[in-house]
Structure formats: structure tokens, C-alpha cells
Nucleic acid binder design. Structure first.
Length: 350
DNA sequence: AAACGGACCAACCGCTCACAG
DNA sequence: ACTGTGAGCGGTTGGTCCGTT
């Protein structure tokens, strides 16, 4: 990691943020809001450049950030959006409430890319590897004998012509969908509103996905398409609502979250309504846990939950147990997110 | 227990774009 | 039209963690 040129000139701090710096920035932004970033360091009493402050806020301190692992739905959405948008991480992040472009970029580079490659899909083109190689060679004949195949994958080259045609069809469908997406300006108001009309308050966009991306799934040769993509027509909305409370629309989110807090305050067995009210009222505080990780302002009430979170995740456990029962985890993530909601709402009221 | 290497993530760099003067 | 400044984005890198040898 190098040093910002502006940081060199002003001998500003670089590298990891200390809890004190985070607290200063957090308190400043929650009090005065986001304005001119270049003046933030001075006004907040930080020896950082504005660029660094902005990044820290966006990627770490923002109260509406969702933490933890990516869900399967998020993962699939990233893949679909990446196919359509390419490495436009900011635009992809805009469709994944609570996730940052940096987070998605890291997730893509460290995990999703390899996952796709394992499935025999080129992460750049989203086509089966065999087809990508053929494209690169500008080969017009369909001689498959020299096509490279990743280890452990069905041999696409050896599949029947019909199967290859199916693969090609699936790619065509997906790519066409992507072109439709790209043919509109990323921030075109009509497009955005069209998109947002299909936005589920829980943050996903099942209608949008259904109307724009209908991934082809070949029952004969699953490696030809996104076989991990869930059947969106059977999308488990109930389940998702429990797990995702965020939305890119701040005002809608605020209203929704407030309702959630109100409703759940009578249901939650872990947090009573008084506690939640306290959390909202006490939102001016800022605290850190022993690992120098930012705790949300209600952390003092949930050290037990945080401790649970540091244990092996249920997904990791699932690897060993092959058990699909995540009810316990869902219960506490739901709770955490619900509290994040209270946190966000309080922030927005400032 | 130590060394090593891969995975992950936070943060920086350099560039582009928008906008005000 | 030009220039300077700030914001935002994508690519890259360095540090840390963790599993393996």
C-alpha cells in the first residue's frame, strides 16, 4: 500500500484506522452529515486526507452496512449482474443493499471467480470455458478435440452437438439480457424507477430478475449454465425478509425499518421494546470491542451475539454436517439486522 | 513449534468525470 | 472553452489470518 500523494504533502496518516480515528469520523459524520470530504479531516480533527475518510466511511463505518457472509441469493445476483455489467462494481453494489463495491469486488476476486471457473464458466465472458477458448482462437470449425477442459468437469467438447447448442443458447440468452441492461444508461431515471418498482423491501429484486434475466438451466448438462442460480419463481420471500432488511432507498428503508422495529419489538424474545428504544435514543455513542472491530452503537447489549458470530459460521458448519438447519443463525442475524435498522434510522434522523 | 503459502480484506493509487469559476 | 478541484470508481497491493507441512 502506498501513500496518497496528498498525504505525502501534508504528512498525513496512512494505513489502518485506529478506533479513535473511527470514532472521530463517525461522530463527525453522524452529527454533520456527508458534505465536502476534503474538509472532513480538518473539521473532524483527523490527520487523514478526505479521500481516505470517504473510503473509510463508505466501506466500514456507514450504519446501513450489512456484515457477514454473502447469501446464495446475493451471490447469484452478483453473478448475473457481473455478466450484464462487467467489472462495474459500484453499479453492482447499488443493487445489493448494504454491500460495498469494495466488498463485492473482493468477494468476486477471491471466491466467485474461482467458483465459476470450477463450474467450467469463464468468469470474464460468463461462457463455458470451451466456448471462450474457441472465440479466442477465432476458430470457425467445431472440432472439439483440442479444447482444454478444467479438471473434474464434464467434457463440454465431447458433449453432443445438441448439448453444445443448448449451451450456446443459454449464453445467448444471458448475454442478450446483459445487453438490454447495458443499453440503458446506468443511472437513467426511468430505468432506475422501473428497477425500483420491482424492489422488494428486503432488498432483492425478484421481478426485475425474472423479467430481465432468466437463466437457462440445462438438466442434462448443468455446467452449461448457472446451475447455482435458484429458481426465482420459487423465491422464498418469507425467508429473505427475515434475513435482509436493507434497501438502497434511504427513506423507504427508514420507514420499513421503523415498522420492523415496531413490529418485532412485540415479538422478539431477545430484545424488548424498551431496549430498542434505548438503542435509538443512545445512538450518539460509539464503541469498540476488544478486537478493535467497530461495534455498532448497540454493541453493549449484544456481546453475546457477537461472540456467537465469531464462532464457526453455520455455512461452514454445514460443510461438515450437511445440515440445512440454520434457524438459530437466522434468528440472531435477523436480530442483528433489525438492530442495524434501528441504528440506521436513528442516524437518518440526525 | 516454526515455516510456508494461499485466502481474504482494508486501504491506497491513478484515473475519469462533473461542476464551478 | 479552459482550468482547477473534488468526488467517485476500478485495479492493485500489503498486511493479517489460517490451514498445511
Amino acid at each position: 500500500m502506498g501513500r496518497h500523494s496528498c498525504c505525502v504533502a501534508q504528512k498525513l496518516r496512512k494505513g489502518l484506522w485506529s478506533p479513535e480515528e473511527d470514532e472521530k469520523l463517525y461522530n463527525y459524520i453522524t452529527r454533520f452529515g456527508v458534505g465536502c470530504w476534503s474538509s472532513v479531516p480538518k473539521l473532524a480533527g483527523l490527520q487523514r486526507c478526505g479521500k481516505s475518510c470517504r473510503l473509510r466511511w463508505i466501506n466500514y463505518l456507514r450504519p446501513d452496512l450489512k456484515r457477514g457472509m454473502f447469501s446464495q441469493e446475493e451471490e447469484d445476483l452478483i453473478i448475473v449482474l457481473h455478466e450484464a455489467l462487467g467489472n462495474k462494481w459500484a453499479q453492482i453494489a447499488a443493487q445489493l443493499p448494504g454491500r460495498t463495491d469494495n466488498e463485492i469486488k473482493n468477494f468476486w476476486n477471491s471466491s466467485l471467480k474461482k467458483k465459476l471457473m470450477k463450474q467450467g464458466i469463464d468468469p470474464n465472458t460468463h461462457k463455458p470455458v470451451a466456448e471462450t477458448i474457441k472465440d479466442e482462437k477465432h476458430c470457425t470449425d467445431s472440432e472439439p478435440s483440442h479444447v482444454l477442459q478444467p479438471k473434474g468437469l464434464p467434457n463440454l467438447a465431447a458433449s453432443t452437438q445438441t448439448e453444445q447448442d443448448r449451451c450456446r443458447l443459454s449464453c445467448t440468452i444471458s448475454v442478450d439480457a446483459g445487453e438490454n441492461f447495458l443499453s440503458k444508461q446506468a443511472y437513467e431515471p426511468m430505468f432506475l424507477s422501473e428497477f425500483q418498482e420491482s424492489v422488494d423491501p428486503n432488498g432483492f429484486h425478484p421481478n426485475f430478475l425474472l423479467s430481465h434475466f432468466r437463466p437457462y438451466h440445462d438438466p442434462i448438462n448443468p455446467s452449461c449454465a448457472f446451475n447455482s442460480l435458484p429458481n426465482l419463481t420459487n423465491f422464498d420471500r418469507q425467508n429473505t425478509v427475515e434475513n435482509d432488511y436493507s434497501d438502497s432507498s434511504a427513506s423507504r428503508m427508514s420507514a420499513y425499518l421503523m415498522n420492523e422495529v415496531k413490529e418485532s419489538s412485540s415479538n422478539s424474545s431477545n430484545v424488548n421494546s424498551q431496549t430498542k428504544n434505548d438503542m435509538i435514543e443512545n445512538c450518539g455513542t460509539f464503541s469498540w470491542d476488544g478486537d478493535n472491530k467497530l461495534e455498532s452503537m448497540f454493541s453493549f447489549q449484544f456481546s453475546g451475539i457477537q461472540a456467537e458470530e465469531k464462532k464457526q459460521s453455520p455455512w461452514q458448519e454445514a460443510d461438515h454436517q450437511s445440515s440445512g438447519d440454520f434457524s438459530d443463525y437466522q434468528q440472531f442475524t435477523s436480530l442483528s439486522q433489525e438492530l442495524s435498522a434501528a441504528n440506521l434510522d436513528a442516524f437518518q434522523q440526525i
